[in-house]
Design a protein around this nucleic acid. Structure first.
Ligand SMILES: [Mn+2]
Ligand SMILES: [Mn+2]
Ligand SMILES: [Zn+2]
Ligand SMILES: [Zn+2]
Lengths: 161, 161
DNA sequence: GACAAGATAGTAATTATTCTCATCTAATAA
DNA sequence: TTATTAGATGAGAATAATTACTATCTTGTC
């Protein structure tokens, strides 16, 4: 829906700089920079906990009590579509299951969300460059290769069938 | 809720072997091996597309028209809890967002589902041991370290506060 | 300030998942 | 076998997550 990813922002920038960047991005994308969008973006910048839409709604409501949950969802999707924010993992909409309970990895199409197996043996062991933060106890590394599946990558056929 | 993961099953086993394994696992876990459970497990073994609960429901209904969606969900959860099947990725229940749109990785607690950052610089580049299957075009590798966060790993306090 | 494109709030509608409970069944022992 | 019973099932209600609809309001531009 949008060509190439634009400039990335550095996590250590101050909010003023990020807001300026955000406004530029909106302008470049032809998106009106509404009060709601700025406050929502600020809530995201200030968050350190990878919040859900509902959590963001609660936080933004403190600044704009009349904001609606729909506006939060609508703008989250727009921000994601334009690469202005990130999401923890590709959203499948629902659980995706398999009989195979052996640890292995996956290829996930970002377009159609199809999932393909990537055997654990096909990937070299994950190696950390330094110790992990906090007292987090890692049990297992899971790799997801994101991209486009053969069908979605193919040039759109002029519905020849 | 359950001690250690038990035996794993090999993806190349025939269905008879897997069903036997499944029955043993149910017995070991004290789970009645109902007709519904066997048919659901078989549908998972025969699936190659990482189906959703709804998709499984559709397939299982062909064998047991009276089965209910609730039974499918209930047993999926039980199977997962006992490590009998796998899921594509830890289910967060909803989207999880962040302002940081730079590619980076995450630590995810399998218990409380909290998410922590793992900077891309902290992980060595993913290296494949061989070519990818199909014509999948990988754009990016995402790593999730699954485990227990500090709080969830800590011995359960006898509510001293 | 006037205009037009697009955004917002409020609400209804969908989709995804969990819960409740009366009834039924698998597993065990007589 | 049959009796027993813990636990499973089906049906439907309830809740959570997300999207859609639409009359009204804002932003960006002239
Ligand atoms: Mn898989
Ligand atoms: Mn992050
Ligand atoms: Zn695809
Ligand atoms: Zn935790």
């Amino acid at each position: 829906m949008h060509p190439q990813r634009r400039a990335r922002i550095q996590p250590d920038m101050d909010f003023g700089t990020r807001l300026e960047w955000f406004r530029n991005e909106c302008a470049a994308a032809g998106l009106p920079c509404t009060h709601q969008r700025e406050v929502l973006y600020r809530a995201l910048v200030e968050a350190t906990d990878h919040p859900s839409p509902e959590m963001l709604y609660e936080r933004v409501k403190r600044k704009i009590p009349s904001i609606s949950l729909g506006t939060v969802y609508r703008n989250i999707k727009i921000f994601l579509d334009h690469g202005l924010i990130g999401e923890v993992s590709l959203h499948h909409g629902s659980l995706r299951l398999e009989a195979n309970n052996e640890p292995h990895h996956h290829l996930v199409c970002r377009q159609c969300r199809k999932v393909f197996d990537l055997p654990a043996s096909g990937v070299h062991a994950i190696r950390l460059r330094r110790a992990l933060p906090e007292g987090f106890q890692v049990e297992r590394f899971v790799v997801e290769a994101h991209g486009l599946c053969q069908e979605c990558a193919a040039p759109k056929k002029r519905r020849s069938n």
